[in-house]
Amino acid sequence: MRTRRVRGLAVTGVLLVTTTWGCAAAGSSGSSDGPAPAPSEASTSIATPTARGTVPPARRTGAVRPEPPAAATLPSGRTVRISPVGTTPAGFLAVPEDIDVAGWWRGGSRLGDPFGSILVAAHVDSSTQGLGPFAELLTVDRGTRIRITSAGLQQVFQVKSRTLVPQGSLADDSWIFDVAGPVRLTLVTCAPPYDASRGGYQNLAVVTAVPLGAPEAS
């Protein structure tokens, strides 16, 4: 089993190499169990996992040829485009600035892989674009479904948990990005409270969903 040292996730950019997370300034304060936050004064940021040096891809096995996810249909029925992302020179996950587009970490698992985390992150809001689709993750219910599609595959996942992860070390949260273990979908965005004096959002909302069946041809 491989593990990675992670810095953090930021909806503007996600840091993947050291051991601290951070949401950059963006959005209003509030609880993840309450309504979505109001648009922020700055773009949201999430930090995700990176490894030292090149991140080795997950080992690919099985009859299905894995593919990068291309879109997610959220429980509300809204579809969000997904783009593959790497890391910035500073080690942050390069989440798309467009709040209507999510970033799939290409160092993680793909749709059709038999194990590991399919990690997808997006901004929760923006001072110029308002609330993003991933804002609904702050109140998503267990048992609801999310459909992931790629160029030639589709698979339905059922929400298992919604967890708040505070800024700081991810040493105990490697399940968010690890390519080992059961296959799961991991969706991440910034979460309240928002404190400008402390750098912005103080938490990440991490939604974990498990497959309801095998991937099928789309």
Score class of each variant (00 low, 15 high):
2 R>E: 05
4 R>M: 08
4 R>P: 08
4 R>H: 14
11 V>L: 13
12 T>Q: 10
12 T>D: 10
18 T>V: 06
19 T>G: 10
29 S>T: 09
36 A>E: 11
39 P>T: 03
41 E>S: 12
41 E>F: 09
41 E>Q: 14
56 P>T: 08
59 R>S: 15
60 R>V: 13
65 R>Y: 00
67 E>R: 11
71 A>I: 01
78 R>N: 11
80 V>E: 01
87 T>P: 02
91 G>C: 02
100 D>R: 13
100 D>P: 01
103 G>E: 02
105 W>M: 06
108 G>A: 06
108 G>C: 05
113 D>W: 04
114 P>F: 00
116 G>L: 00
116 G>V: 10
117 S>M: 12
119 L>C: 07
120 V>E: 03
130 G>S: 02
140 V>W: 07
141 D>H: 14
143 G>S: 05
143 G>N: 03
143 G>P: 00
144 T>H: 15
146 I>A: 06
147 R>F: 01
147 R>W: 03
149 T>Q: 08
153 L>C: 13
158 Q>C: 06
160 K>D: 15
163 T>M: 07
164 L>V: 13
165 V>W: 01
169 S>R: 02
170 L>E: 05
189 T>D: 05
190 C>S: 09
196 A>F: 07
198 R>S: 07
205 A>F: 03
206 V>S: 04
208 T>H: 03
209 A>D: 02
216 E>T: 14
